[in-house]
Design a protein around this nucleic acid. Sequence first.
DNA 1: CAATTTAAAAATGTATTCAAAATGAGAAAT
DNA 2: ATTTCTCATTTTGAATACATTTTTAAATTG
Lengths: 221, 221
Amino acid sequence: MYRVINEDLNEQVYRRLREMIVKRELQPNQKLIQEELASRLGVSRTPLLSAFAKLEREMLVKSIPRRGYFVRSITLKELLDIYEIRLRLETLGASEAARKCDHSVLEALSVKTDDMISLDAEKLKVAFPEYDYEFHTLIMKMSDNDFLVNMVGSFNLVTLGNIMGMYRDPRGSLFEHKSILGAIRSLDCELAESAMFSHISVAKSRIEQYAKDFSYEAEER
Amino acid sequence: MYRVINEDLNEQVYRRLREMIVKRELQPNQKLIQEELASRLGVSRTPLLSAFAKLEREMLVKSIPRRGYFVRSITLKELLDIYEIRLRLETLGASEAARKCDHSVLEALSVKTDDMISLDAEKLKVAFPEYDYEFHTLIMKMSDNDFLVNMVGSFNLVTLGNIMGMYRDPRGSLFEHKSILGAIRSLDCELAESAMFSHISVAKSRIEQYAKDFSYEAEER
DNA sequence: CAATTTAAAAATGTATTCAAAATGAGAAAT
DNA sequence: ATTTCTCATTTTGAATACATTTTTAAATTG
């Protein structure tokens, strides 16, 4: 009676695998041995293959025919390429979000942001990545452009898996988030767009800086 | 001996299905009966399911658990949403293409464009869609941002399937293409970006106009 | 001892099978 | 005549089965 089945195994396996990759339970470049993974997840290889197909299209996994599926690793160049795209897409999203602003979502997000600000440094570091993903995703949702939600979602996911542990000061990001939210609240499209632009620009240069300092290893393909 | 196997059945089936959808051999909203399709393509349902999974992620197909897969139909709103995204992404691509210009690709594309211009109206109408897809794809390839190539490719595909037969005057597009190519040839990023912007803007308003004139049917979801 | 060959084991790609759910046609009831 | 119910048929979801290829490790060779 209470049961809701709008998710089949395919979908569940897909979500779980995605999570395992993003959280680095599955290492970059690691081969995904089908039997092993399937029994680990308690399913057969069949739903696994559909999940691989989806993950391949969002560049989280790579297929080499007859040799198997591998967790895709991202080079620094690719990470910056993604930021270049985010810079274009998320500004569009922010602008549209300001136009179609849903205040209940907006206020919920504001509260969450304030909550994060009041956390101590240690807790913040742990909780930030997931919050950050949600922040960006929800703003895209406010734009009411499903394609945008989809694409930005999968990019942020790729980003997420790759910048874990290279955040500098999450607190700075939080204040940038607040100004983006402020612009959306006042329905100012252009301001929202430029606030988002500088937010992502900062993140991007943070990565460039990090790459210089710690010579981000460019994994071969 | 001559055989090259870097494509498995999954990939072949995926490509073929994609083509069938874009070329309207499979109608929007049509249910994809697995056994039937599988035997039509001469494969089992297994590779079909992987193909569905990929097509679902690029929004060409929609899954309703326990009921099946359906060819996704695109509403006018969604089509315009896609154009909004193309406007952001392809401008980025054009700008980068001008920065990293590969002259051999550029000249090949220029020749092709001139060839199109010299076709008579009837032939042009037939040949244009495929050429147009190639034009936009190759420019993204010149940008050397794989993610961009991927995303724009799948969007243009969706577009392609939906604006077939609603082109007004392909010849106008061709001259816009020439000015984009000119800007890239002279390595002028900003000019390339703005030329691409106005090209896509024109296409977008053409669609808006078409929608007004012929009341584009907004298919229900 | 390194390089090559060979044979066994493991893993992949794909088809097949089977249980559970959805669909559809006809019978019964209102 | 329309709705509801029943049951056979179709279709899906997911596991299993099997042929082919890849990997591995041992055995052989130079």
